[in-house]
């Protein structure tokens, strides 16, 4: 069947089998390999991408279901060559070890901050609870997202941020 969808603001059309999963379409047909294919059972969350406005596990969505819709992957996080604050946070706070879970963690983090710009450490953990970091690097993932939240708050206030104290608090 013929499907057309917008991925990171670029329109793609392709002839696919209805049983093709969205994660495989993104990786194999489009060559966007930032989204990872992990457990295949909607448990690990390595395949999280945005479908329209919300993150979904793309191993449990058929590509056909995204026909006529918008998809956003980790490749679409940066804007005009500038990393998203979430990406910067993961860099600053050592938010990844092996990196397998990282793209999906960042997609969920972006969604969380869009809806809750000042999440507590507990709220961050709740938002990420459908995703697994097998390196168990959760502590630094939470710090990374707090870094992004504070960076964005400071940007909104138009003042340079003071991150030290609250990053410490988020770790507790």
């Amino acid at each position: 069947m013929q499907i057309t969808m917008s991925v990171n603001d670029t329109e793609y059309s392709a002839e696919v089998e209805p049983r093709l999963l969205l994660i495989h379409f993104i990786r194999d047909n489009l060559g966007l390999t930032g989204s990872h294919w992990g457990c295949d059972t909607s448990n690990c969350g390595a395949c999280v991408v945005w479908l329209d406005e919300t993150p979904v596990k793309s191993c449990t969505v058929f590509a056909a279901m995204a026909d006529g819709h918008r998809v956003r992957t980790v490749e679409g996080l940066e804007r005009g060559g500038e990393l998203d604050p979430v990406q910067q946070g993961f860099t600053e706070c050592h938010g990844l070890q092996c990196g397998f879970c990282t793209p999906a963690m960042m997609m969920t983090a972006r969604w969380l901050l869009d809806n809750n710009p000042d999440p507590s450490a507990g709220e961050i953990r709740e938002a990420l609870s459908g995703q697994i970091c097998r390196c168990t690097g959760y502590e630094n993932i939470v710090r990374s997202i707090r870094w992004a939240a504070e960076h964005e708050a400071a940007d909104r206030a138009g003042a340079p941020g003071e991150f030290g104290d609250s990053v410490q608090e988020a770790a507790g």
């Binding site: 479908l51 919300t54 993150p55 979904v56 596990k57 969920t108 938002a127 609870s129 459908g130 995703q131």
Partner: peptide, 9 residues
């Protein structure tokens, strides 16, 4: 029920 990402769908 499940997790926040599954609940989105």
């Amino acid at each position: 029920i499940a997790d926040p990402i599954v609940r989105n769908r």
